[in-house]
Amino acid sequence: MGADKQKAERRDWMFRGVRRALGGPMWFMSLGFLGTGSIAHDAGQPLLATLLSSPVVWAGPAQLLYFPALAANTAIFAIVVAVFISSARLMLLSMSLLPMLKRGGESLPRLLYLSHHIAITSWTDAMVMAPNVPRHARQSYFFGFSHTLMFGSTIAIGTGWVLSGSLPPILAAGLLLIAPLYFSTNIIASARRPMDWMAIGFGLLLAPFARLVVPAGFELLLIGLVAGTLAYVVQRILNLRRAAGR
């Protein structure tokens, strides 16, 4: 196959990625970021820092806890820990997706740039789509998709900041529910093993009490470690029992 043909093919796949993001994911994500933008405004953050947070941090849950935590005057160390723990899954997402996107021989900066774009939404889509894309065009498709998401969410978080306060409270309250709704559908969509469902269930049961046990900001760490470990242990016991029963 000629180099020109491959180039044309990559271009074609890049636009398919753009179209796929425009067909839904960019909008859900962006509407959620409207609410985050208005909270950033309430937290006294300048517009430019709010806009930058999207392409720079590029992890919805981290942004979703960073700005409200600032607004609530949470201890900086507690925010660092919460962001650190909430982003731990990025390592898993990256490690599982990178081998599918690699063509081999990429430079370290290129790999870091690829990895930077892997977050829940782009990962979910790429894990499904990548096997259908010729290997040489996978990064083109992935960047078409993820850059579109990034563009939309940056516009949205800035719009939320600008509209903050002037948004009718009826609408503002509704928009603030989009992010938790969108994340819960993502959690449900990625739950496959019994362990995942147990982690969700234990997390929900623990959430109302976590605040009473630890200082503000550390409740997410507590929920993650206790509920997650419990779910893992129960699954492990079930696996061992099944193995012993055979």
Partner: peptide, 25 residues
């Protein structure tokens, strides 16, 4: 194990934004 902790933590993010929300919510 890390995946399980991450799932529980993300559930916690959703739960706390609904239990102790900010803004109009």
């Amino acid at each position: 194990w890390v995946q399980s902790v991450a799932t529980a933590l993300l559930t916690g993010v959703v739960a706390t934004t609904v239990l102790t929300p900010s803004g109009a919510l």
